[in-house]
Design a protein around this nucleic acid. Structure first.
Lengths: 342, 342
DNA sequence: AGTGATGTGGGTAACGTTTCCCAAATGTTT
DNA sequence: AAACATTTGGGAAACGTTACCCACATCACT
């Protein structure tokens, strides 16, 4: 009943059972050249009969591990879950297994996680919105095929997949301006680092906001509260904006959670949305879609981004020296009930 | 500039640099017996100077990989994120690295993921709300130290950590009955499998609901809509309940998302919460806590569950033949604005 | 018949660790 | 001083797979 687990079946067992060499079994496993159809079926039958499964550890020592590591800064952000869905769907019928490292917020944790993935000889890495220095990313990418998602700026070492955050911000401004708004304010995630200012999506959204305001002849109305991409940041940012001598009639929050925080502050100030102030968010998360909230938001196709990232990564694993590619997707605006005409 | 990545530093390089044997380096790495303090410092210095990192693949071939695999059925459920936080916090300063497998809904996907983790010679597994057959779990646990979280029923092969779902359901019924409600309905996740009916949390919640209703002399008011633990399931379930000849005055949803779906259906029917109908959820997710929603919900301490699971797992890795333990935590009720007196 | 190309299969040395030994040096007891 | 235990260090054989060869058979052309 309580029998001890039997020793693991190895390639040697399979070879013996099929009466061939281990080399032959290995070839069949990898669909490599040099195995006749007859041999293939014989070996595959032996594999099935013995229930053999190759050891990733042993494989890793020699070559591939058929493992792709994905780093997410934050599990609770539903947008990242969409990206992940895209990755796993794209990789669904391949031999690759996706493994995730949890909770890598902060440069230190991120570095640790990336090291851990390299230690485990993963075949490729998908880094989602990494905060590490660009030089570090480049160094990593030279060691392991890497795709960076959600961070602007190209590199000769890694591929990138991003959403056009500037266009997304423009969509919001255009929508609000079309509704007759002029005093359109923005709540951004505060950023000082020069490189991140150029590469991080939050900075791009703020830049897109500025550009779009200028494009609509509203440069004098530009008003930015600089807090953080959290609910508390939205609350604080909205408070600041509401305290202005001339109150904005619309607030473009850089992320959905920020918009929620802002809506709380607005409600506390005794104002209504969208009656007194229109609010728009970014990411079109499940929260935004939820009926009672019904937040106008910018939709990035996370699944598509993930699928693209996975495709690029598999490509690069197959061909490590190909030129790097940059994929940029266009966001769309989902208008809901938090924005209205002035 | 574009120099190729240098060959990885191995234990042999370290040994040569420190002028000792590879055995000695290995001992230092693992804090094993048989290395003098002098040797330790010498080797550690060499490791630091060369920036050496052990290869998990090679280690896996011989012994441990210092990797713990966590299987989650669903990334979007924020309660699971709490469990994960607990696990990583508990393991924070150990040598173990946590890796996650995404999207394992369904028995087939789950089996595949578990296999993948075994293939990668992980040191231990945390399975969160697994749906596999009990015999399968036992078999897995005999091969790898395993802790099962969120599934009732003990096993001689694996440890378990659960929340007392029967008690949680009772808390809700008690609260509602205390508010004067009699027609308290429940939306459950439909389950037919006999084993799951005994072991899965959703089934336990439904059972707890029944027991508590009886305990409060409300057995004639028991009313269950059997759908699924999704927002759509909640919507559908509430529609069914609202169509009853005598409408319930309170709905106990088996999960927060279910409660949200139910609230949508209630709003569509032109009724108000909690004016016409009180609604309570389960899990106390971030959604429930969010101001505008403010859902009364049962709180399971996910972080604590995760921490306990990690502790049990590390214990078992150290001592594989110790008796299995079952930890059950008590839930608490967080009363918010979706429940009110009749 | 001779030459070369192609297809098929296997032998064997890595890959980077850990584990099991054994040897030498040192300390401790009789 | 001898005998024995303990500490310290290292040699070498695994672990399971793949990559690089080489050998042989077959086939198609000269």
């Amino acid at each position: 009943m309580d029998k001890p687990a039997p020793r693991r079946v190895t390639i040697v067992d399979v070879a013996r059972h099929a009466q061939v060499s281990t080399t032959a079994v290995s070839k069949v496993l990898r669909n490599a050249y040099g195995a006749s159809p007859a041999m293939r079926t014989k070996v595959q039958q032996a594999i099935a009969e013995l229930g053999y499964r190759p050891s990733a550890a042993a494989r890793g020592l020699r070559g591939q591990t058929y493992t792709i590591g994905v780093m997410l800064p934050e599990l609770r952000n539903l947008f990242f879950a969409d990206i992940l869905d895209g990755i796993t769907t794209q990789l669904g019928d391949s031999d690759y297994q996706v493994l995730l490292a949890p909770g890598c917020n902060g440069e230190k944790a991120e570095a640790r996680v990336i090291e851990a993935m390299i230690d485990r000889s993963m075949d490729g890495l998908v880094l989602i919105a990494p905060v590490s220095a660009r030089s570090r990313l480049t160094e990593v990418a030279r060691n392991i095929p890497t795709v960076v998602v959600g961070r602007h700026g190209s590199s000769p070492a890694y591929d990138t997949v991003t959403d056009d955050d500037i266009a997304g911000a423009a969509l919001v401004v255009e929508h609000l301006a079309g509704l007759g708004h002029r005093r359109i304010a923005h709540i951004e995630h505060h950023e000082t680092d020069r490189v991140r200012l150029a590469e991080m999506p939050n900075a791009q959204r703020a830049r897109g906001y500025r550009q779009a305001m200028i494009a609509h002849g509203l440069e004098d109305e530009i008003d930015i509260a600089s807090t953080s991409y959290t609910q508390a940041g939205g609350y604080l940012g909205a408070q600041q904006l509401l305290a202005r001598p001339v109150r904005p009639t619309a607030i473009f929050a850089g992320a959905d959670v920020v918009a929620l925080g802002a809506m709380e502050a607005i409600a506390e100030a005794g104002l209504s949305v969208p009656g007194d102030i229109s609010v728009a968010g970014y990411d079109n998360s499940a929260l935004a879609a939820f009926g009672p909230i019904s937040l106008t938001s910018v939709d990035q196709d996370g699944r598509q981004m993930g699928a693209d990232a996975a495709r690029l990564l598999v490509d690069r694993i197959a061909q490590r020296d190909r030129r790097t590619a940059q994929i940029t997707l266009s966001p769309t605006l989902v208008v809901r009930r938090t924005t209205a005409a002035v």
